[in-house]
């Protein structure tokens, strides 16, 4: 998985090829809507709705500063970060144990359980909102951090198990056997021998679960409350701030939301494939 860093083929000198221009053109075309939002966020507030739109202007960071200092914007970001990191960490820990078990001991019903786990991710979220809504009411978990962290842990488990099992199946059982012969405990083998070899899987599981939790809207909206809303709900409510839609504000929150994602795509690009296919397709792009 690390061939790109070893030897970079020297770039062809000479005129830029037609394919390069076409490739860059396509990439920029797809990014334009997002670029437009970022530019809207950087425009002076009174020129945002000008027709004809301003394409050249002095960028200002005032809108971003305003957006962050407005009521609970900052809290939305903090909440989303809390859910992402705590629940994904928990989920990956338990998923690591489970996928070791699935991969090495193959207990009865492994295939069926894997099937069930995957299917939970294929159901529209709206289908599960009702039972969760009632369950959370009964358990008094509505609008609580504990409830949402438990929910997001559950939400992250299926994907983590799939991705980690895929990577673990690729690690030869010879390592385990050798370890056993030398009298190492299962725990030692699991964490000191196998874990380092599935590091890519762990990174992919971390990065993509964090994105999924960071992006989750419906359950946060229905199971949470003013105290516990995350950033997607923050975006959702940003259009209803005040009477008229304050597009500078919406665009600013949108920009703050989207920038970390773009950075993640840049730095973790090689995990993108594995991350978006539940670990079922591996390889580098």
């Amino acid at each position: 998985m690390s061939t790109t860093t070893v030897m970079k083929p020297s770039r062809r000198k000479g005129p830029i090829s037609f394919l390069t221009i076409l490739g860059w053109f396509t990439a920029i075309l797809f990014f334009l809507p997002i670029a437009w939002i970022i530019s809207t966020a950087l425009k002076p507030k009174n020129t945002v709705l000008d027709i004809p739109p301003k394409f050249v202007f002095m960028p200002t960071f005032q809108n971003l500063v305003d957006a962050v200092s407005f009521s609970n914007t900052l809290q939305y970001f903090v909440h989303s970060a809390i859910y992402s990191f705590t629940s994904v960490f928990l989920a990956i820990f338990v998923a690591f144990l489970a996928s070791y078990s699935f991969s090495r001991f193959k207990p009865a019903g492994t295939d069926f359980l894997m099937f069930l786990l995957l299917s939970t991710r294929f159901v529209p979220a709206a289908a599960f909102v009702i039972p969760f809504f009632q369950l959370f009411n009964v358990l008094k978990l509505k609008d609580s951090f504990l409830g949402l962290i438990i929910f997001y842990t559950m939400f992250s488990i299926p994907f983590s198990v799939w991705i980690l099992k895929g990577f673990m199946d690729g690690v030869s059982t010879k390592f385990d056997e050798t370890g056993m012969v030398y009298g190492a405990s299962r725990w030692h083998i699991m964490f000191k021998v196998v874990l380092p070899q599935v590091r890519s899987g762990l990174v992919a599981a971390f990065v993509f679960n964090i994105i999924f939790v960071w992006n989750e809207f419906l359950f946060n909206f229905q199971l949470g409350g003013l105290k516990t809303y995350g950033i997607p709900v923050g975006l959702f409510t940003s259009i209803t701030k005040g009477g008229q839609v304050d597009w500078s504000f919406v665009a600013s929150i949108g920009t703050l939301y989207v920038m970390p994602l773009a950075l993640v795509i840049f730095f973790f690009q090689k995990y993108l494939l594995v991350g978006l296919t539940f670990g079922t397709v591996r390889g580098e792009v």
Partner: peptide
């Protein structure tokens, strides 16, 4: 590719 792939991870 970052520019191209960003739209699909936006909520």
């Amino acid at each position: 590719l970052t520019l191209l792939f960003t739209p699909m991870v936006v909520t």
